[in-house]
């Protein structure tokens, strides 16, 4: 979801009016998949779960987003669309994604380090557990050494290099690469690639989420938004007066 377009006002949070958007980091994940495919061959499946309603409006948006990602060099897409996933927790979303991924027998799963709306960084590691794959998170650099793939993980206070051992789920940060922009031919070609839509019952999932949302309230961010005008030194003087008055200098 694109939270830059998310509207928050006195009456509440209007999730319905925000535009569905692929988190920027997901472009980095797709770029890495395409680079590895170019080097080692293989097939790229794209898996997306729709977690915000309303369904009719969102489904078109998510299809469009999937096509854009496929155009970078993917082979097929699977969309999981089910009202039971709207506002669902990461426990259930991970179960759904893992069930769909399992059908395709993929040995490397690449995710973004977090979604831009939530940034809890939960989906990657949870999908790894569901698949019983290794998990290597926060990968900021990928390099090759004697045909081995070396991953550099960027953690708080330190970074470490580990060798990629399949099967695995990895999560990447924005620094891992610069996503390519697909050509017009690639974008047109992506429309012809297979795209299927599955529901939770198609995936055999009857379980419910664990965490529930009692309330979402707008965060008070009332800023004064006072424009200070004049020459640089006039504005500097005005600002200092105001900051002294605020008691922050």
């Amino acid at each position: 979801m694109d939270t830059t377009e998310l509207l928050v006002d006195e009456r509440g949070v209007k999730v319905e009016e925000a535009i569905t958007k692929v988190s920027d980091i997901d472009n980095n994940a797709m770029e890495l998949a395409v680079q590895l495919k170019e080097k080692f061959g293989g097939k790229i499946g794209l898996f997306m779960a729709l977690t915000w309603g309303p369904m009719q409006m969102r489904i078109k948006e998510v299809q469009k987003a999937a096509k854009k990602l496929l155009a970078m060099g993917g082979d097929e897409a699977t969309l999981i669309v089910d009202e039971k996933l709207f506002s669902a927790d990461s426990f259930l979303v991970a179960k759904a994604l893992a069930a769909a991924i399992r059908k395709g027998s993929f040995d490397l799963v690449i995710a973004g380090e977090g979604s831009i709306d939530n940034f809890s960084s939960q989906i990657g590691p949870k999908v790894a557990e569901e698949l019983s794959y290794k998990f290597i998170g926060f990968v900021s650099r990928v390099s090759l050494k004697d045909n081995n793939i070396i991953l550099t993980r960027s953690m708080e206070g330190y970074e470490e290099d580990v060798m990629l051992d399949l099967p695995a789920v990895i999560s990447v940060t924005q620094e891992v690469n610069k996503p390519r922009i697909p050509s017009l031919t690639q974008v047109l070609g992506a429309s012809k690639l297979p795209m299927k839509t599955l529901s939770l019952s198609d995936l055999g999932i009857t379980e419910e989420g664990r965490v529930r949302v009692a309330e979402i309230r707008p965060r008070r961010m009332e800023r004064k938004m006072v424009k200070l005008e004049g020459s640089p030194s006039e504005v500097a003087e005005k600002l200092l007066d105001l900051l002294v008055k605020e008691g922050v200098l």
Partner: peptide, 24 residues
């Protein structure tokens, strides 16, 4: 604590055992 280590381990352990997680 919801740093990278905490959120990763909490996600994996809770999913493996079968319960939910609330971060940040």
């Amino acid at each position: 604590a919801s740093d990278k280590f905490g959120r990763t381990v909490a996600a994996r352990a809770s999913q493996r055992i079968g319960f939910g997680a609330i971060m940040d």
